[in-house]
Design a protein around this nucleic acid. Sequence first.
DNA 1: TGAAATGTTGGGGCG
DNA 2: ACGCCCCAACATTTC
Length: 460
Amino acid sequence: MTKLSPVILWFRRDLRLHDNPALAAAVRSGAPVVAAFIVSPEADDPWSPGERAQSWLRVSLDHLAASLGERGLRLILRIGRPELCLAQLAAETGAATVLWNTQYDPTDRAEETRVAEALAKVGVASRTHESDVLHRPGSILTGAGRPHSVFTPFYRAFLRMPPLAPSLSAPRTMTPMRRWPASVSLNTAFGKQAQRPILSDWHPGEEGAIKRAKRFKAHALDSYESARDLPAVEGISRLSPHLHFGEVSPRQLWQSLTTVPGSGAFLRQLVWREFARHILFHKPELTEQPMRGAFAKFPWQPDPVQTSAWQEGRTGYPLVDAGMRELRETGFMHNRVRMVVASFLVKHLLQPWQTGTRWFWDQLYDADLANNTLGWQWVAGCGPDAAPYFRIFNPVLQGEKFDPEGAYVLRWVPELKGVPVRWLHQPWLASVKPRRYPKPIVEHTAARERALAAYATIRD
DNA sequence: TGAAATGTTGGGGCG
DNA sequence: ACGCCCCAACATTTC
């Protein structure tokens, strides 16, 4: 029997052993597997991961290395440009093939192209697999053969797609290398600096992801449709960072939940994720540019003072401030509240949506280019299938509707303690005003009218 | 995956 | 008893 040359498995945001097509293919080849992750400090990429995402990634890689270790493999960490590192690694190990799962963010696609070209030059083959999406971008088009720009038709077309192939199980045995190539440590790759520790209710890594998914299925899926809008209730899945880093695949979730009655509302959210990826695939410029051209002329009023009041949770609107403080303190924000704070920044404060995109990108564990971009464009009214610009959330009403007891705002804005529930969402009307809590930085009705006037200037 | 303004209706108080 | 008015409550339109 001829000795097989090793294959390199290039891990990216697919940090799992289950349902990992590239890994499965590598193992199936029977060749020794070199699992690699490349940390690339790309100064020229405006969307390189933020601090929160980095700290998540670091822990997740630690777990991945451990579970590879249990199966006799090492995770080789290298620092540098992927095309150079992988070519180098191939030369060191004699690998003839590099496998990976495709990712569709603009910079990831460019990176994959560079890698494939660099490998081809040195006679190393590239093999790509699908796992970041349920259906490949470009595979779902309108009757006219164009990308969908409205969610509902996309959703219908999505449901008509051929059934998914079954999820892959984690490989039991893998062929190790006789001698492992060198690897840098996580400390070297990410710096020894103490990063903000991950809060104890998050568990980066595949095991944490699977546990979270199981817990959600057992305890929250039933009531998801109604409870997902209540930030004081644990009614959401909290799977977004796990999905972002590929610690669980969308296919695993889809197949585990699709047979459960009442799972439709959650699965629909997974399709929103697909929708965002498909749109960004077709229009990569949307990370910076509004999808609707008219918005290029929108009279934003950039103002660092207003922006930092928003960032720091000092707007005087309890629901907005609670959300922004939750974000800063935990790296996460409940989605209902994300919509409210985003609407507030863009409409009440007239700050460009890109300001919000950037802040979320830097603060969120689950910061995901497609979801973040499309979410903000949606709120701002300039995106695909966007909320009309005149749909302006009233932060008081949203608070009264979705946090009626005020448990959520009290948790994150302790200055409100003592304010009667009746006035929790508009404490400036309480007979005894909370001390140390700011007055609203804008008055709702006036801000609303100002936003409508600004919108009127770009309407045709 | 709004909210506010405006319109309509119907019950009840009251002269 | 009747018409008038007020105003919830709900529906529709507008932003």
